[in-house]
Design a protein around this nucleic acid. Structure first.
Lengths: 345, 345
DNA sequence: ACACGTTTTGAAAGCGCATTCACCCTAGAT
DNA sequence: ATCTAGGGTGAATGCGCTTTCAAAACGTGT
């Protein structure tokens, strides 16, 4: 910048004005400066600009390090499927990028390796005007510290820190509606719910929705899922289905799984056992993964608006940046029941 | 930082060392500093750090503003397909993010709106250690200026500036191999190639591969594609197929399209006309889009390693950052022929 | 007790830009 | 010719950190 100033015979203040407030510089001067900048290959330093103006024009996203384990398993069988399917994080990135672009922000993304002062999280936090965090990505204590300095919005998880904005999807509502559909529209009565680990807020919320629907319909309300799995993967879903089949007592009419992966695994297990879906058994999932559309029979499920999650995150960040004092908000994004074949539709 | 220094009774230099070179600070002092930092909610400023150290730890990516037009069209018919299918840019982002993470970099992404000094491109350029550009995203003149200051790698396009690293996929090789397959393995003789606009380097390279295969097989070598379309979309592919059908002379045995979108359109048009694929007509595409797997008959095509493109981009950037003097390199990524139903396999 | 080699720490000088304040110049008004 | 407004410009300061360089603290051997 000093070079540009010298070469065009002005002060650095004028060069700065050429970029920040072009109309405040006489056209002729402006041209001289731009010409010099071109000749010298001048690229304004975002760092210096950010330092001086205390703003970066960048929003951030921290997401977990994992790739969907089942996606990897599928990929082995069919390596180019891996390139075709969007993961959770891909969709959020897409949503955030689009929304950020609309507001003139760029997007800085990083998967969190581990916590600590030198993590990528710290790098992101220091370089953005605000950022979004996927639940269980950043240690709460780090978040606590960071969120005192800049806007943070928590995505798809419990609000661990109460002064943060946060966005969740309507897990309970979705599962309740899905369950209601099975009960009222298909006349099913003996339903079982297969949940996840107790520390999965999503799975717990979905179970809650299931219970509410049972209660509303006057059916028995279970205290616990019929079964819990730890990772909610396909293999566990398959195992769960078999376990439930082998369990004594009357066979259930429907198995509701806390996510699509388990449901898909169950579909395969049931096929192996000769249990016809949906005639002998209805099966449902939750999430709306692409695989659910392809599998036979196609999977009835609840679709999460993941991309909207990203878009909303940006909106909240932008809002808060323009109104620091705003009360923390907590959004719940609506989900939609996708009726396909596996429920009997 | 000054506050942290004061609160912990040390100088700012020591605070800095705690974060940059923790082992050079006595453990006891370090603890005091970290404690104070925690209490004060201290988040190191990436800007200041970048300014002082002249490095950001961030790599960038600029990609075009468009969403795949056909993808949008498909999305109207089936809105959740849109969320399931990865676009070109999504795949590159994924590849770059993974590779960047391995090297300890975060990734800054921005779609280029327009050029000019205040564009997102300029923002990206000023905030990263190096970045990748998708062809036809950034005006060459801007790139010319920027690339004199930091490493830039050009992706999937002609190297407009000769001192840039750049990466392309083996368009010609792929099409040549695909054509050879049709000729040798399926014994086809009357092949026609449907190309794109002359200013599409990809389409031209693919046509070149087609010609090479014809020449190698001793078949007539056309100077021009049998037909050219401008946008290479499905509708144009359909139209092209019909035009070729209606054209006088002997009906071709195979239609090779410059991309998958056109090929899929052609598949539909041929079905409407009662031309059986692959019995009466072989059809091939190029790209390896997910749709090609689903369509009936499934589409034989050439798959581009898009994600690898992103990974390689990061590798080149990292290399160049550690060895500024390295000669510009030009990589060509191998592609793979995917034999599915539409060619007769 | 003293000298000497090692850590540890501090002081100070930037890094490249935005921004305030004061100044200068040009027009139009008097 | 003198004055007044304002637009256009420059000097100077500070943003928060890294990084020498030098001084202080610490340990060790004599």
């Amino acid at each position: 910048m000093y070079d540009v100033a010298e070469r065009s015979g002005v002060s650095i203040a004028t060069v700065s004005r050429v970029y920040r407030t072009p109309e405040s510089v006489r056209a002729q001067t402006r041209e001289r400066v731009l010409e010099a900048a071109r000749e010298l290959g001048y690229v304004p330093s975002g760092n210096a600009r950010g330092l001086a103006s205390r703003t970066t024009g960048v929003l951030g996203l921290c997401f977990p390090d994992y790739a969907d384990p089942d996606a990897e398993a599928d990929a082995e069988a069919d390596s180019d499927a891996d390139d075709a399917v969007m993961l959770y994080s891909d969709q959020i990135i897409r949503g955030m990028e689009r929304a950020a672009r609309r507001h003139g922000y760029a997007l800085l993304i990083a998967a969190s390796l581990e916590g600590g002062p030198e993590s990528l999280v710290a790098k992101v936090a220091g370089r953005v005007d605000g950022f979004a965090v996927l639940a269980q990505t950043v240690p709460t204590e780090d978040l606590e510290v960071i969120s005192r300095r800049l806007p943070v919005v928590m995505l798809a998880g419990p609000r661990e820190i109460d002064h943060l904005d946060h966005i969740v999807v309507a897990n309970a509502d979705g599962e309740r509606e899905l369950t209601r559909h099975l009960i009222e529209d298909h006349g099913l009565r003996r339903l079982v719910f297969v949940g996840g680990d107790t520390d999965s807020p999503d799975a717990e919320a979905r179970f809650r929705g299931f219970r509410e629907a049972c209660r509303d319909a006057g059916l028995p309300v279970p205290d616990e899922p019929a079964l819990r799995t730890t990772m909610m993967k396909q293999a566990e879903g398959a195992l769960a289905a078999e376990t439930l089949l082998d369990r004594g007592g009357e066979r259930p009419e429907a198995m509701l799984f806390a996510n699509d992966q388990m449901a898909v695994g169950a579909l395969r297990a049931l096929a192996r056992r000769g249990v016809r879906v949906p005639q002998d058994m209805a099966v449902t999932g939750f999430d709306g993964i692409p695989l659910g559309r392809i599998v036979q029979p196609s999977l009835t499920t609840v679709r999460q608006p993941i991309r909207r999650l990203g878009e909303q995150a940006v909106e909240l960040l932008v809002q808060r940046l323009s109104d620091t004092g705003r009360e923390p908000v907590s959004l719940t994004l609506p989900v939609s029941v996708i009726r396909r074949t596996s429920c009997g539709c």
